[in-house]
């Protein structure tokens, strides 16, 4: 075991950790918003919308994330330069990076899993509470904002915490599309120092710390609104 390389490589490791956390935050943040829409479409949408949302979730949950990532990066990525004006626009430096494709495909994938969780939670909110809201004369949007969604999110909170950890464990895939995340840093250190296991171990410790941080944070949030059983 040789850990003398850490002093030379720690800036790289920290940069990698930042990329990993950034990918996680983007995919969970935007994915959650998308998931709310998808879950609502499945619960109260008209039939065509319901089928569309259901199909989206089945497709994204039924195929490996790696294939989705490569479909975006290699497949969609090869079409993007054909869009007139995109290469001259200010968006191009962002859109040509692997990070962009990783963020997009992780977001779409996370949304599919999260929508399924939220769908169940929306259906699990006691009917009486919604009826009470309606009896107060709340409009559908107010009802959703004040009662339905907060209650559903509270019910789903433990599951959401698990999904966020699963999403964290999915982020190393981004290294296959040139993102310099934590895992990619370990790979680079291996190439430079010819050490196989030590970089992997250090990076693993990082992931475990992040996992602990996420579970702690969710436990704190859950304690804010205790559920009486």
């Amino acid at each position: 075991m040789d850990f003398s390389w850490i002093s030379a490589y720690w800036p790289l490791i920290v940069a990698g950790a930042v990329q990993t956390v950034l990918l996680l935050a983007i995919s969970v943040g935007f994915g959650f918003l998308l998931a709310i829409g998808l879950a609502l479409a499945q619960v109260i949408g008209p039939r065509w919308l319901r089928w569309l949302a259901k199909g989206y979730c089945t497709a994204f949950r039924g195929t490996p994330l790696l294939i989705q990532l490569w479909l975006f990066y290699y497949g969609v990525g090869s079409f993007l330069p054909m869009i007139p004006g995109l290469r001259e626009s200010i968006l191009w430096p962002i859109v040509r990076e692997g990070f962009f494709f990783a963020a997009v495909s992780f977001t779409l994938n996370y949304a599919a899993y999260e929508a399924e969780v939220l769908r169940g939670a929306l259906l699990a909110v006691p009917k009486g509470e919604l009826e009470a809201g309606r009896a107060f004369g709340m409009r559908p949007l107010t009802l959703l904002r004040r009662i339905w969604l907060p209650r559903a999110i509270r019910i789903a909170l433990p599951t959401i915490g698990g999904e966020v950890v699963l999403q964290l464990k999915a982020t190393p895939l981004a290294f296959t599309v040139t993102v310099m995340d934590l895992y990619a840093v370990a790979y680079k250190i291996r190439q430079n120092t010819l050490l196989v296991y030590e970089p992997l171990m250090v990076v693993t410790v990082f992931y475990i710390c992040l996992t602990l941080l996420i579970t702690r944070a969710f436990r704190l949030v859950e304690q804010q609104v205790p559920i009486r059983r």
Binding site: T58, G62, W70, L71, G75, G77
Partner: peptide, 28 residues
């Protein structure tokens, strides 16, 4: 195998889409 096929023919979208369909078929 998909990456190989896509890389050789440069039809990335087609092959990754086909692979996604195969995975979906396995799942369903």
């Amino acid at each position: 195998a998909t990456r190989l096929a896509a890389g050789n023919t440069k039809h990335y979208f087609l092959f990754f889409f086909a692979a996604a369909l195969l995975y979906l078929a396995i799942t369903l």
